[in-house]
Computed example of a mutant assay.
Amino acid sequence: MFIFVVLSLVSLLSLGSTYSTLSDETLKRLPSPGDDFNIKTGALLAPILRPRVSGTEGSAAVLQHFVDFFTKNLPEWTLEIHNSSSTTPTSGGREVPFRNLIATRDPPGSSSGEVGRLALVAHYDSKLTPKGFIGATDSAAPCAMLLHMARSIDAALTSMWAARATHGLDALEEAKGVQILLLDGEEAFQSWTDTDSLYGARALAADWEYAYHTAGSTYRTPLDSIELFVLLDLLGAVSPRVPSYFKTTHWAYKNMADIEHRLRELGLFKSSPNHPARMAKRKNKKPRTEPHFLTEAKKVDEAFLGGFVQDDHVPFMARGVDILHIIPTPFPRVWHEIDDDGENLDMNTVEDWTRLVTAFASEWMGLEGFFNSATSRAIHEDKSEFEIP
Rank of each mutant, 00 (worst) to 15 (best):
Q190E: 14
D339E: 13
T41P: 01
P31H: 10
H261C: 05
L305I: 12
D346L: 06
G132S: 10
W335Y: 15
A297P: 01
A150M: 11
M347W: 06
T26M: 00
L128F: 13
I379C: 11
E260D: 10
V96S: 09
I259H: 03
M279Q: 14
R52H: 11
I259K: 04
E385N: 12
V178D: 05
T166V: 12
A122T: 15
A378H: 15
S17T: 13
L268G: 03
L169Q: 13
N284P: 01
F370R: 02
W192Q: 11
K28W: 07
A252P: 02
P291I: 08
P315S: 10
L367D: 02
A156C: 02
R241V: 04
A203E: 03
T354Y: 08
P276E: 12
W353H: 13
G307T: 12
I102K: 13
V357C: 08
S239I: 04
P328M: 07
W335P: 08
H65K: 04
R288Y: 05
V230K: 09
M1G: 11
G306R: 06
G113V: 02
L231G: 01
K254C: 11
D125F: 04
T221S: 14
D258R: 15
F246Y: 15
A141Y: 06
P51M: 03
L44F: 07
I3G: 01
F386D: 03
E25F: 06
T249N: 05
S85Q: 15
G369Q: 03
I326D: 02
L234F: 04
E290Y: 02
A201R: 09
S152G: 05
S159Q: 14
L15W: 01
S86I: 09
V314T: 14
N284Y: 03
L74N: 02
G307I: 03
D106V: 00
T195L: 09
S91T: 05
G320H: 03
V67F: 05
E227F: 00
T218M: 08
M347N: 05
M1C: 08
H325E: 13
D196E: 11
G200L: 08
L63F: 07
K127E: 02
F308T: 14
I338G: 00
W335E: 05
T137P: 07
E381V: 06
P389W: 06
S362R: 02
G113S: 02
K298E: 13
H380I: 00
D233L: 06
A119V: 11
V115G: 02
E57I: 07
Q64S: 12
L268C: 07
S384K: 14
L169F: 11
L63W: 04
Y212T: 05
P107N: 04
L147A: 00
A257C: 09
K299L: 11
R264V: 10
E173K: 13
F269N: 05
I153K: 00
S159R: 15
W192G: 10
S271D: 06
E186K: 03
A318S: 07
D322F: 03
T248A: 14
G185E: 07
W161F: 15
Y124T: 07
N372I: 00
I323N: 02
D322P: 11
